[in-house]
Amino acid sequence: MPSGGLEGFDASVLRYLDAAYNLARYLLRDPHDAEDAVQDAFLRAVRHFGSLRGSDGRAWLLSIVRNTCFTRLRGRRRAAEAVEFDEVEHTAQASESEPEADLARAMAAVTLREGLDRLPVEFREALVLRELEGLSYKEIAQATGVPIGTVMSRLARARRHLSIALGAAGKVED
């Protein structure tokens, strides 16, 4: 179990810095933003380290990181609403609540990386945590603050849409 102080912090939180940065890179898709977000998140983690008390340091840190990232994404969206339509279009990605057919249309992509970028950010997050970080559904649920059932359906939908996008670039219907 993590002890307090700097050593405890190093052993139970700081060791997941790579996981934190990787997640931030995929959520924000910008290296500088990701660095800033991760540093902010760690400042918060240091401040609230006392509240960790033996729970899973990785899920705990990742939840702080993703909340920091989502706050930034919301800020970006607000800023984008104030500028030209073209620029909004340029950075647009599908949202989780879109109907399947709309999502499929937005997903017509050729490469894996492009496909991932076009997924709703919550789907991309689930895939990165599962495929690159190897987290269980329970750990993903803890990190992202949703029920396990939601994790399950996000992953299933994310994979379905990626498969469609990769299998048939240009084809828009399931």
């Binding site: 934190a20 990787n22 890179r25 995929y26 894996l112 990386r113 991932l116 495929e131």
Partner: peptide, 15 residues
Amino acid sequence: LSADLRAELEYHRAP
């Protein structure tokens, strides 16, 4: 698809 994701997506290590 899973194997491709793991193989092709870059894991960004912290600078």
